[in-house]
């Protein structure tokens, strides 16, 4: 019994220590953005993190929008409320699916790549040698990636929503023969820009911070061996997914659950 309590305590201390370390790490990196050449380094990472994730996010968004419309139609038609399809598709996407699914895809596509890349730089002593040259790797390597992830994911989420709503339109209007006007007007009547689009964006910003933070920290903090890199990459995906889903519940409860 006692050894278990001790083990629990040790785990707790380790966890707190890791949280503290990663918090310091985040603060040091995030503040390090406006350096010389920083803008260009950030632009490069925007390419790797954002532009290259665009395809997978948009294709997923299209399919999810189409599936939502198809599923929603079969349910709504039972109540004779199929004209509310646009509303259903738009609200599900904006409030919930776009921020969450885009964040999960982002963790898998960009987050794991960030971890592996930084981990490889650590394993090949590139980070150490940068430090010996007198350049802080937190500023040079980590900060641009952190900021790129932070900016990219909300943009990807917008893309996801737009494409998803268009996918719903394709299925609902073009295929199932819903009246085009009611698709859009129902949507416009029920979607509030601040409450729905705005809160969805806020969620996405939070997810962007958490996923990128986990990814770069796992990369920076890993044991510099090939096994260490592969473990850290897995950890990035697992931790980010759990964090995104857990935080989503909290944020939804605060934003839409009537709690405040």
């Amino acid at each position: 019994m006692i050894p278990r309590v001790i083990a629990l305590g040790r785990h707790g201390c380790d966890l707190l220590e890791a949280l503290g370390r990663s918090g310091l790490f985040l603060a040091q990196s995030a503040l390090g953005w406006p350096s010389r050449e920083g803008l260009y380094l950030w632009l490069r990472q925007m390419h790797f993190v954002g532009v290259l994730s665009l395809a997978i996010v948009l294709v997923s968004g299209l399919f999810i929008g189409m599936v939502l419309a198809l599923q929603g139609y079969t349910i709504l038609i039972d109540f004779g409320a199929e004209q509310a399809l646009g509303q259903m598709v738009a609200l599900s996407l904006l409030r919930e699916l776009a921020p969450v699914v885009a964040a999960l895809l982002f963790a898998g596509r960009a987050g794991s790549a960030l971890t592996a890349e930084i981990g490889l730089m650590k394993a090949t002593e590139q980070l150490t040698s940068m430090e010996m040259i007198g350049v802080d790797p937190l500023r040079r390597v980590v900060a641009p990636r952190l900021w790129a992830g932070f900016v990219s994911l909300p943009l990807l989420t917008v893309g996801f929503s737009v494409v998803g709503i268009y996918g719903g339109f394709l299925v609902g209007v073009e295929w199932l023969g819903l009246f085009e006007g009611s698709y859009w007007s129902n949507m416009q009547a029920s979607v509030d820009f601040i409450a729905d689009v705005g809160n969805g964006m806020l969620k996405s910003l939070v997810f962007a911070l958490v996923v990128t933070w986990i990814a770069v920290f796992q990369g920076y903090d890993l044991i510099p061996t090939s096994e260490g890199i592969s473990r850290a990459t897995t950890r990035t995906v697992v931790y980010s997914s759990l964090a995104v889903l857990g935080l989503d519940f909290v944020l939804t409860a605060v934003m839409f659950g009537g709690l405040s």
């Binding site: 909300p154 917008v158 929503s161 737009v162 949507m187 979607v191 820009f193 689009v197 964006m201």
Partner: peptide
């Protein structure tokens, strides 16, 4: 991304 946000504002939230 910015155009998408404009689309969400105008076309989706009316």
């Amino acid at each position: 991304g910015i155009l998408g946000l404009v689309f969400l504002g105008l076309r989706v939230s009316g």
